[in-house]
Design a protein around this nucleic acid. Structure first.
Lengths: 208, 208
DNA sequence: TACAGTCACCGACTACAGTCACTATATATT
DNA sequence: AATATATAGTGACTGTAGTCGGTGACTGTA
């Protein structure tokens, strides 16, 4: 029987090939944008065949998603460290508002429209498993969960809804805002609208 | 100079061609779903050339959008007549909650996942002008505006935000919920989540 | 060492959206 | 009526994502 774990020279080479494709794609996408880069150009730069591409990635979108996932995970780490800069006695609402502003900044300034658009498009076309972006154990959910939990503990938020439920609704709202930003681009100020929207949502969650 | 208004036999024939394409597409889409119908098969059924298709529709998505727009306008009319069945003294909140439930029902039961998915996908890929679906003068905005205005007049809602602003935020929330439903399909109960979400939003809008 | 099985890889091929130079003919102009 | 112009319509062609039967180097086994 073949040992599934052993890393043979053959598998090493395969991993090497995958990395080459990934790296070429990354360079080309950054240079020309997602739309203008074809699979053919990626495999040409990587020096492999088209067949090899589809051995390692189920589709062009799957590759884009893989790149996005790396990106999203990095972003979540950034949000985490951003929060560590806050004084311990900041209220949960204030933290949430600050975080939402930060997220809006990152999306509009760092990530940018082209990339966000593709991520949202891929999610809806479902050609790819986007668990890492959508999954409820994504870091962003944990971050929100912690803040909201703190708000509930300190009697700032209502207890009618579970912490988990509130978390899901708030992150859904961010996704909705970002979707709206994408479809109305460039006629929609994400940060301004996000802060206003969270003003409403937080009022609905706070104790009267 | 050519008279732009006159309906010549030539223009009649052109309209006829457009209708044939439209009708063939409608039949094929209903039968096989959007993804499995090619432009070639549409023009074959309509008995016209591919070039004719692109004379009348800028892209395949433009045709899908045209079909969607008809659909959406019909839905908005349905919502309007649904509201007329309410007693005059119903509170604005109650009307809104009922309407949101109705919309969720229509989306999940009447329109269905396949069609919603395409509408949301077309909007984000922006290959087409989706003004009729997104435009702030869409009937749905007017409907919401009336209800919210009533709520403000009767002192039920806060006056910090304008009626217009509230309308936009609520419809954005519906879009966000529907997007979430699409990307989590079939693991997301739209009606349940929409009602819960509007519970939060309305609390944030009502006078304390 | 011989050999059978596997699998990473190859690249010609298919399917399909969209383009464009051209044709045919209805309409406007003289 | 003769001619010029505008435009609906044509279909071969292009570009690109994705497919699939074939190949040979590498693997574990006897």
């Amino acid at each position: 029987m073949l040992n599934k774990e052993k890393i043979t020279s053959r598998k090493e080479k395969a991993i090497e090939t995958k990395k080459k494709i990934y790296a070429s794609a990354d360079r080309l996408f950054r240079k020309h944008g997602f739309d203008k880069v074809s699979v053919d150009s990626i495999v040409e730069m990587a020096g492999v065949s088209k067949g090899a591409f589809y051995v390692h990635f189920g589709s062009k979108n799957a590759l884009i998603t893989a790149l996005s996932v790396d990106f999203v995970q990095q972003l979540d780490l950034d949000y985490k460290s951003y929060l560590e800069s806050f004084p311990a006695d900041t209220t949960a609402s204030d933290i949430l508002i600050a975080l939402v502003g930060k997220i809006a900044d990152v999306i509009t300034l760092t990530v940018g429209y082209d990339v966000m658009k593709v991520i949202y498009e891929v999610q809806i076309t479902k050609t790819v498993n986007t668990e890492a972006v959508l999954g409820y154990n994504r870091d962003l959910y944990k971050i929100f969960n912690n803040i909201i939990n703190q708000g509930v503990q300190q009697g700032e938020f209502k207890t009618e809804l579970t912490v988990d439920t509130i978390t899901k609704h708030l992150i859904m709202a961010i996704r909705g805002l970002t979707y709206e930003w994408c479809i109305r681009y460039p006629n929609f100020n994400l940060k301004e609208q996000a802060l206003k929207h969270f003003g409403i949502l937080l009022t609905g969650i706070k104790k009267q």
